[in-house]
């Protein structure tokens, strides 16, 4: 299977129209955009969003694409950051029919496509799940059969994204595990602690399997998990990381 290079389409600002919005958790929502002449993307890539106030003041931020390339609409899942500048607008203000400017796709390293093979180990901290979800959705949409282990770490149950969809996707070679790092509800069957080496081994992050490992989350999560993976003996070049800082917006 041929591996597609990131396309060299000029990164021009496009006017995107909100087709729909979906609540994903207590603090996150998915925004479905119609983007005229969207050049296509690879799972794992992101877009830049530009908001402009009436007096011309502008703010830009980057958000990961959640939808697979085959979808007609472009979906972003945005987590609210209370002190942020752009995320409160996207999560609380933006309505169906509104228009904003975006450009992309951006980033050609933290991507996966079927020709890259597997097995895949996807390790998500909080809303770091978003670009990994695009990979998982693309795997299913493209009919790829590479085994996937996904571990999602979140603070608490209400923060988990895409839970219903993940329970449907957890079959045919896809395993989904959870760990809650703070409070877990009674009857919780997942883990209830910070990710550690034992947990990584249990979800298939065993260097003998030579998996492709993608880690995405806040800096503390990514630093911690990447160190554990190197400590387990994974080739550092087989570990791709993407981070978003607490300063995000």
């Amino acid at each position: 299977m041929e591996r597609l290079a990131p396309r060299k389409t000029p990164l021009v600002w496009r006017v995107a129209t909100v087709r729909d919005v979906r609540t994903e958790s207590a603090t996150a929502r998915t925004i479905v955009f119609d983007v005229p002449d969207w050049p296509g993307h690879l799972p794992g890539q992101h877009v830049d969003i530009r908001l402009t106030a009436e007096d011309g003041y502008e703010a830009q931020r980057s958000y990961s694409i959640a939808s697979p390339p085959a979808d007609h609409a472009l979906e972003l899942t945005v987590e609210l950051i209370d002190t942020g500048e752009v995320s409160p607008y996207l999560v609380e203000e933006l309505q169906r029919g509104d228009q904003i400017e975006l450009r992309g796709p951006i980033g050609g390293y933290f991507t996966w496509q079927p020709a890259d093979g597997g097995p895949l180990v996807l390790l998500a901290g909080g809303s770091g799940l978003v670009p990994l979800m695009a990979m998982l959705r693309h795997r299913d949409a493209s009919g790829a059969t590479v085994p996937v282990s996904l571990l999602v770490s979140a603070r608490a149950l209400p923060a988990l994204l895409y839970r219903d969809e993940l329970s449907c996707r957890a079959r045919d070679g896809v395993e989904v595990s959870y760990t809650l790092t703070r409070e877990a509800p009674s009857g919780w069957t997942g883990w209830n602690r910070r990710v550690d080496a034992e947990m990584l081994r249990a979800v298939g992050a065993d260097p003998q399997r030579r998996p492709l490992v993608y880690v995405c989350g806040p800096t503390g999560f990514v630093e911690h998990v990447a160190e554990l993976l190197v400590g387990l003996g994974h080739d550092p070049h087989a570990i791709k990381t993407e981070r978003f800082g607490p300063s995000g917006g």
Binding site: V15, R50, L51, T52, A53, Y57, E85, D98, Q99
Partner: peptide, 11 residues
């Protein structure tokens, strides 16, 4: 640029 309805920003 396109004006984003209701966006004021945190300057």
């Amino acid at each position: 640029a396109l004006i984003s309805r209701g966006f004021r920003g945190r300057r």
